[in-house]
């Protein structure tokens, strides 16, 4: 294991303040992971993840934890895209996201894109644990290389559990070092951006959303549980965001 990298864990804890608002009893930055509370809206607290330095580089291990406790309405974004780069000493970089959402709480986890620069080796893992009455909107976007650049290696895993039951468990491996066929007709076929929009809402248990295609490369997939996944691929980050924004608007309307 590479011991020269940076290890950092940032923590957010949000809870209802009992007056219709959301307080942040914990907002702990760590090293390159800086958290800022920004102006909220309604009863919702807004937090911005600000990259205080570039990363993750090879050998780094970043973790971000966010817990939305009862009554909380929390929205987390990031100030800029995350750029995964190779480190001076090489080796794998890790980026872990651990989210929990309590009954009646709501978390919007909407970071900017993850860009896999040439030579990076990033292992990304996102796990969301929801209580039965929790609400979640989560977006992840992977961009393979900067413009015209050969992408580094990415292995990502996205896991959603509701009431302890795994509703979604999905890995995506692409770029340098990924198993054969990752850029072929079954997986990405030359698209350089892939995205997932995950929406969980207790309302979906009784009013499931129907599967539908929003375009030739974007589909709405009701999962085997009260949650919906939008899967999309696109030629670039801008077109991907356009597709996911349209999907989010559609799903926000049906879950309102």
């Amino acid at each position: 294991m590479n011991t020269t990298g940076v290890r950092a864990t940032a923590r957010i804890r949000a809870r209802g303040d009992g007056r219709g608002g959301t307080s942040l009893p914990v907002l702990a930055s760590d090293g390159p992971l800086a958290l800022r509370r920004t102006r909220g809206s309604g009863g919702e607290a807004h937090v911005l993840l600000v990259g205080a330095m570039s990363g993750p580089l090879g050998g780094d291990h970043f973790t971000v934890r966010a817990d939305a406790e009862p009554g909380a309405r929390l929205r987390v974004g990031s100030a800029a895209a995350t750029l995964a780069l190779p480190g001076q000493h090489g080796g794998e970089a890790r980026h872990d996201v651990r989210l929990t959402v309590a009954d009646g709480a709501e978390l919007h986890w909407l970071p900017e894109q993850l860009i896999c620069a040439r030579g990076c080796e990033l292992r990304m893992s996102t796990e969301a644990d929801l209580a039965p009455g929790a609400r979640l909107v989560l977006r992840e976007e992977q961009v393979l290389g900067r413009v015209g650049e050969q992408p580094g290696g990415l292995a990502g895993r996205l896991t959603l559990r509701i009431a302890g039951r795994t509703v979604l468990d999905q890995e995506l491996a692409c770029g340098a070092g990924a198993p054969g066929g990752w850029d072929g007709p079954a997986v990405l076929a030359g698209h350089r951006a892939a995205g997932q929009l995950l929406v969980a809402h207790p309302r979906f248990a009784e009013h499931p959303v129907a599967a539908r295609a929003l375009s030739e490369t974007t589909v709405v997939l009701p999962l085997a549980g009260p949650a919906v996944l939008v899967t999309a691929v696109a030629p670039d980050a801008l077109l991907l965001r356009r597709e996911l924004d349209a999907a989010l608007e559609l799903l926000t309307t049906v879950s309102a």
Binding site: Q170, V187, A211, T231
Partner: peptide, 17 residues
């Protein structure tokens, strides 16, 4: 393992419709 192929999932729903 949980390896996924985005275009297989996208294609399956387009095909079913």
């Amino acid at each position: 393992p949980a390896c996924s192929a985005p275009l297989l999932e996208i294609g399956a729903e387009l095909h079913a419709a």
